[in-house]
């Protein structure tokens, strides 16, 4: 069964370039602004949209994304509203893939079966759930695949060749390679090491490999796009959004533009990359 994610990566392969995957937090800094940002992302150059599902205790995130989640929660964000955002987005865009990224507890409390039905109906294409390793596949991964959603797994520098097959076994859509052992928004990855890691993962799977954690500039995006199928940028966009807020933490006039300007820059970087990796 082909999903929007599969179709998007197939089309970009035809074009011969990598995808830009953008991460923003659903409901940050408020529901309306967050929807306006999502709607503006494809035109600015985002190929795949990742939306963070706010959680009080994001153990794998650095300060920028932690703060984004808390801003969203303070403005009234909750799982049902994240799904409502996707529904609104889908009214005007049926092509751009949307991946929800977050932690398991809010989904567990929403109810796994109900969540999968509602997410699929809203137009969600895939899920990334940070605290569900393959050891816990029965919780959400297998039901999600059955419901026709992609389940995108993270592979990390600590995932060795022995473990990779387990990590890749129920992965679909794409593989998300976390370029550094650390939290989101840490130091920039070394492009040479990333290329080797991507090549290693590609020996085990035909799925596209996206690379993220620590990518901040167009130049870094270009370097990563040369060796991977997609570049994920999150903390840098969330930081740009944060800087555009007024003193009380509310959206300013330039908030949407602050995000889309950076996305446009990053998209140029991705498009300027010369593909060197054999795909």
């Amino acid at each position: 069964m082909s999903t929007r994610i599969d179709r998007r990566f197939a089309a970009l392969k035809q074009e011969g370039r990598a995808a830009l995957v953008t991460f923003t937090m659903a409901g940050d800094p408020d529901a309306d602004t967050s929807l306006a940002i999502a709607k503006a992302l494809p035109k600015a150059g985002a190929d795949v949209i990742e939306l963070g599902m706010p959680f009080t205790d994001p153990m794998a995130d650095g300060p920028a994304i932690q703060a984004a989640g808390l801003r969203a929660l303070k403005a009234g964000a909750r799982t049902s509203k994240t799904l409502a955002l996707v529904r609104e987005f889908r009214k005007s865009d049926d092509a751009t893939p949307i991946v929800l990224m977050g932690y398991y507890n809010p989904i567990y409390i929403y109810g796994v079966d109900k969540f999968l039905i509602d997410a699929k109906a809203a137009g969600v294409d895939g899920l990334i759930v940070v605290d569900l390793p393959p050891e816990e596949d029965e919780e959400l991964c297998l039901p999600a695949l059955k419901a026709g959603l992609n389940f995108i797994r993270l592979a990390t520098p600590t995932t060795d060749d022995k473990r990779l097959p387990a990590v890749l076994s129920n992965t679909s859509g794409f593989v998300y390679y976390v370029s550094i052992a650390g939290v989101t928004g840490s130091a920039a990855p070394d492009a040479g090491k990333v290329a080797a890691a991507v090549a290693r993962i590609k020996r085990h799977t035909k799925l596209p490999v996206a690379v993220g954690f620590g990518v901040k500039s167009a130049e870094q995006a270009r370097a990563i796009a040369a060796c991977a199928d997609a570049v994920v940028v999150g903390s840098a966009l969330v930081d740009a959004l944060c800087k555009s807020l007024d003193n009380s933490g509310k959206a300013g006039l330039g908030t949407v533009k602050a995000v889309t300007d950076l996305v446009a820059e990053l998209a140029q970087g991705v498009r300027a990359a010369r593909r060197v990796a054999a795909t």
């Binding site: 153990m59 390793p133 050891e135 797994r153 990390t156 600590t158 060795d160 650390g182």
Partner: peptide, 10 residues
């Protein structure tokens, strides 16, 4: 159970 990020799993 073991509900942790992949980085910590190994």
């Amino acid at each position: 159970g073991r509900f942790v990020a992949e980085t910590l799993m190994p």
